[in-house]
Amino acid sequence: MNSSDTPLVSVIMPVYNGEQYLAQAIESILSQSYSRLELLVFDNGSSDNTARIVADYAQRDPRVRPLWEPTPLGYGGEVASNIAARQATGTFIAKLDADDIARPDRLAKQVAFLQANPDVFLVGSNLELIDSHGNTTGMRAYPLSHEAIFNEFYLRFPIANPSVMYRNVLKEDLYVIRFSHFNDYYSLFLLINSGLRMQNLPECLTAYRIHNTNTVFTNLRIKWRSNVAIKESFIRDFGYVAPLSQRIKIATITHIINLLPERILIKSMNKARQLIKA
């Protein structure tokens, strides 16, 4: 198999104070069955042992490229991901968060899919849910076809951002920073709305870790308001037509979140995910 058959994959991994799970995330990439890769680990102003862990791996494996920013850039790693992507040299770019795990055949299957489907810009997958110890607790399914993904964008983010691989062809940054949270949600809508095709694979190619330090579980009311503002922008700015059933579900969730105290919003959020099958 020559180099034209095995395009380089650039894996982007932003990390902020991620020493607890970082080594597992890095190992999951370096042990992929698809080995022609570079791993860009962007240390986003960490104050723990993240820098040492990344440096150790870079010494042992030349595919690891450490990147560093002394001051945290915020926005859930999206600014850091943009900076890393500008330095990516691969034909394809894959994302993985520093507390998640890529299954051994993830890159191979996504590269094969993109090569077989040249009209598709981005491919994601379903998520396996794991706890802080790596035990499987469930799965999260996503719509598979381009049309189904587009039709669910108001209801939820129908692509698992930690699972994506996309073609390194964009002239601008992947993530447009407009909102205080969830600019990945907004940005991928901009791309699919512009005509770029996206699909999800039915397998769980990434294990998404749910633990008590997930940033998704902080400031829930503020983050939900940002989520709703993004949904409203789809309709207001782009003429997106959201089905009435989806709008009723989102209105119901909003009422629950506004009604309950912050301390029990995590449970209500999980109920909301069940309601919308997210």
Rank of each mutant, 00 (worst) to 15 (best):
Q59D: 13
I250N: 12
S233A: 13
L191D: 06
A58Q: 10
L190M: 13
A85W: 05
G74V: 06
S245Y: 11
G18T: 04
L191T: 07
V111W: 04
L67G: 00
L37W: 06
R103S: 08
K271I: 08
V241G: 04
K109G: 00
R65C: 02
S33L: 13
N2C: 10
D105H: 11
E78C: 07
R52S: 14
D5T: 14
Y185T: 05
V241R: 14
S10D: 07
D97F: 06
S47V: 15
L188I: 11
F121E: 02
L122F: 01
S47R: 15
T215P: 11
N219T: 13
I29H: 01
H133L: 15
R103V: 09
L275H: 09
L188S: 07
F182E: 05
R273C: 11
F179S: 01
I83E: 03
I250E: 11
P14C: 01
I276T: 12
H133V: 12
I53A: 08
G124Q: 08
R140V: 10
N44H: 02
A141R: 15
Y16R: 14
K249R: 13
Q110F: 12
L37I: 15
S35I: 14
A84T: 05
L37R: 07
Q32L: 05
L96G: 00
H146S: 03
V111M: 08
E128G: 05
L73M: 14
D100R: 00
D48C: 07
L244H: 07
L40A: 05
E128I: 09
H255V: 09
S245K: 14
P158V: 02
Q110E: 13
R273I: 06
N2Q: 13
Y34E: 06
Y75F: 15
P162Q: 05
A94D: 04
V169T: 15
S10W: 08
R263W: 09
D119Q: 15
Y166M: 11
N82M: 12
L73F: 03
N212L: 11
E172G: 06
H133S: 15
N117D: 06
M13D: 06
L155F: 02
N219A: 14
Q24W: 08
R167E: 06
I177M: 07
C204T: 07
